[in-house]
Design a protein around this nucleic acid. Sequence first.
DNA 1: TCAAAAGTGTTGTCCTTACACCCATGT
DNA 2: ACATGGGTGTAAGGACAACACTTTTGA
Lengths: 236, 236
Amino acid sequence: MELTRYVSQNRMLVAVDCIIFGFDGQDLKLLLIKRGFNPEKGRWSLMGGFVQPKESFENAAQRVLKQLTGLENVYLEQLYAFGYPHRDPLERTASIAYFALIDIFKYEKQLSSDFHPEWFLLKEIPPLIFDHADMIEMAKEKLRYKAAFQPVLFELLPEKFTLPQLQNLYEGVYESLMDKRNFSRKILSTGLLLKQKQKDKVGSKRGAFYYKLNNKKYRNMFNGFLNFIPYPKKLK
Amino acid sequence: MELTRYVSQNRMLVAVDCIIFGFDGQDLKLLLIKRGFNPEKGRWSLMGGFVQPKESFENAAQRVLKQLTGLENVYLEQLYAFGYPHRDPLERTASIAYFALIDIFKYEKQLSSDFHPEWFLLKEIPPLIFDHADMIEMAKEKLRYKAAFQPVLFELLPEKFTLPQLQNLYEGVYESLMDKRNFSRKILSTGLLLKQKQKDKVGSKRGAFYYKLNNKKYRNMFNGFLNFIPYPKKLK
DNA sequence: TCAAAAGTGTTGTCCTTACACCCATGT
DNA sequence: ACATGGGTGTAAGGACAACACTTTTGA
């Protein structure tokens, strides 16, 4: 015998939306798509989808992410549940927002066409549907908050990267300038980085040494409390 | 004309659940209720309720909280959206968990009877329905995380409180001991506290001075990054 | 040879920790 | 008078911010 269901309560649609961050060595970017159906068809939007009956929210976000980027095993974290009644004018729809940090170079090899995805500079996000701009704002804030104490930004980098690239990344996230001497001392003192013998010759004539993550240490420290950003700074 | 709805998608129930923290000057506590309906009738549970058609999640949480405690304008923050398919065995139900920090003494004056609420020591939480224990675990963690950098724990205190009480609170949240000299220096250096002339004579013969929050400063600092917990410590 | 970016060391200041004694009062 | 918890100061070490010059190399 089935117990009675929760009668006389209203059900609603539940979707996930993904705020997908990437970093090209210079600038922080977001991956957006052209919405393919009504309402708001053709406008820019976060990638999203409805949660299916047998799926957890996390699984739904992974599915949606894979659908767009082809990537799996990506850093994905629940951001916030958005649910005011008319956020989707057509029908009440809750959205569980996730933010993802991906290696933009892995993505660029993928060919995903249906959604007309495009990378936008974080500073040049176009108008978006519904409350997606709020979601992005919150994701930026959470990323700043989190990256201040945990080495999460490495998820945005390829296997090999240079210190100047890493500093660009931190400067982008915090929209501020940092002293390269203090920055490298602090980062290197964590012991997270392994210096490589090769240099990256793209960004400069002299070239900058590549580093890789010390993966074992990285996993151990991932949930620790560190102190990655400098105290309040003078900008020149 | 109405646009087509999102046909062939499944809707689900959405509820809110509240993790309600209190502090009696000595220990951290949680407010739990006896669930009044099936399934799992009569077992301990977080206070919750279904989100109504015209309600945001935040409003639903406020409503539920007021229903139980009689309190409004309480510190309330979204924690996480729990949604794996069978968390409620009866029917798929998402739960948006909120955590609340309330002044336990304000509550104690309220008479709310229907739910058979009881305060439990945070260290002595009974078995709970569904995934409520996970919610509490996450709430504890988030409170620790947040209180490390923001003066959020004052939301748990009455208007007037003593430094030893405040220290008990921090020690309870971090399950560790702190040096009272360093603690008071650090707290007082924020300028958040206003010393009162009266003393609390309950906790000791000599009595401890009351302090009040400097509310203006409090509001300004609330979203700042501070450093409230000591670096790794030796416990005696 | 010059322009452009990479790399590196020192110093002063402030924050943090560790630690011990006296004070006020109710019993 | 004594037991209980409240209140305070100092010194040493570590972390942080400020700061400038040399190196490399492609054009």
